[in-house]
């Protein structure tokens, strides 16, 4: 069982912190646009959920089997979010 180097811990930590906030922010906007309710309520519910999303990404950043999988998965989530956000603005 290999031990993590300081570099790996730092990279996972940065992914979790920066990637986590970015994904949470992006998907907060996506959920706010797509929730089938009044925009005021949708914005509030989406914002409340975004913190859980942020925490989940940080957990994932450390639980993921490899850094490669992490970046790949992260990229997919970002792209999906951007597509859905653009789609909601049409």
């Amino acid at each position: 069982m290999r031990r993590w180097s300081g570099k790996e811990i730092t990279l996972r930590g940065l992914f979790g912190l920066l990637g986590g906030y970015g994904l949470a922010a992006l998907w907060c906007a996506v959920i706010a646009r797509w929730l089938p309710m009044a925009p005021l309520d949708a914005s509030l519910i989406a914002t409340i959920l975004s913190f859980l999303l942020f925490a989940a990404v940080v957990i994932w950043a450390f639980a993921s089997r490899s850094l490669g999988r992490l970046t790949g998965g992260g990229a997919v989530c970002i792209l999906a979010g951007i597509v859905l956000l653009k789609g909601s603005m049409l």
């Binding site: 907060c28 906007a29 706010a32 646009r33 989406a46 914002t47």
Partner: peptide, 9 residues
């Protein structure tokens, strides 16, 4: 997290 609010308003 102002993004949900900004997305709609």
């Amino acid at each position: 997290m102002p993004w949900g609010a900004i997305a709609n308003y």
